[in-house]
Design a binder for these strands. Structure first.
Lengths: 139, 139
DNA sequence: TCAGCTATATGTAAAGTGCAGACATAGGGA
DNA sequence: TCCCTATGTCTGCACTTTACATATAGCTGA
């Protein structure tokens, strides 16, 4: 019977190592990027993906991008139409809706909070952290 | 048979809305926070959680924190022992290992990259983005 | 005795992502 | 013509992280 008893229990199991930073974009950031990419331009998925990779070092796979775009569309933040005018296969071109513009604004606010958070992390990491904490020093 | 054919297909299904920013901390950031909290101090889970909540506006639930700590321990980034000296129930006190210090450094580098990324997002959002892109303007 | 705070832990489900692969169109070369 | 490649979109699957609910236990004070 497992319990919260304080035994010197084992610390081992078969799992992927993950105290280390993840490879890709942090969870959900992709949505913010997709929305902001469509802020002034109407683009299709493949183009967005290429832009993100080449100009912003945001690396994601096609499946994730297309899936996220469809999700944004389902939720009413973007709308799309087919463009067959150009050479090659038809592209689904996306544009931001008013709701999408609002969502982007929310994202901007949220990401500002994240940045503040990051700054706190760094000040702690570099030892510049102040705040009155009369705790005991290490050892 | 579903295919990639360009039909004006439906965009609807039953799902949670998620073009909006997530509530909690972005993916995996918790690991970075736990490591950095232990940089100069030996703390137990409950204390870490309280610190994060009160001083850093990092809100997580106990289950997530304890689970993450055990994971970090399994992976060798932190070690723990039971402390029953103080009043109240025994606490599992954690300290950073050398591997944990290294991992924290990796996290710091990764988070710096994230911050650079965030800055790019904001410059795009505020319209300060430069870079030669001879694309067609919207509409 | 019993409520309430401290403290740790697990089960479960939801959500996001990476990887692999399918499918389609168009153009170029053999 | 046929095949190969680049462009473009989409789905299935497995894995990871997280939130929420819940269980357990020690200690303190009424």
């Amino acid at each position: 019977m497992p319990s919260a008893e304080h035994t010197e229990d084992d610390v081992s199991s078969g799992r992927a190592d993950s105290g280390l930073p993840p490879r890709g974009t942090p969870k959900n950031y992709l949505m913010a990027w997709l929305l902001v990419m469509l802020k002034d331009l109407n683009l299709h998925g493949y183009e967005i993906m290429k832009e993100l990779r080449e100009n912003f070092a945001v690396v994601t796979d096609p499946g994730t991008v297309y899936r996220a775009l469809r999700q944004l569309e389902r939720d009413g933040y973007i709308t799309s139409w087919w463009d067959s005018k150009e050479h090659g296969p038809a592209r689904r071109v996306y544009t931001l809706t008013d709701a999408g513009t609002d969502a982007l604004k929310l994202w901007s606010t949220a990401l500002e909070q994240y940045r503040t958070n990051l700054d706190a992390f760094f000040s702690l990491y570099t030892g510049t952290w102040v705040k009155d904490r009369p705790d005991s020093p290490k050892e």
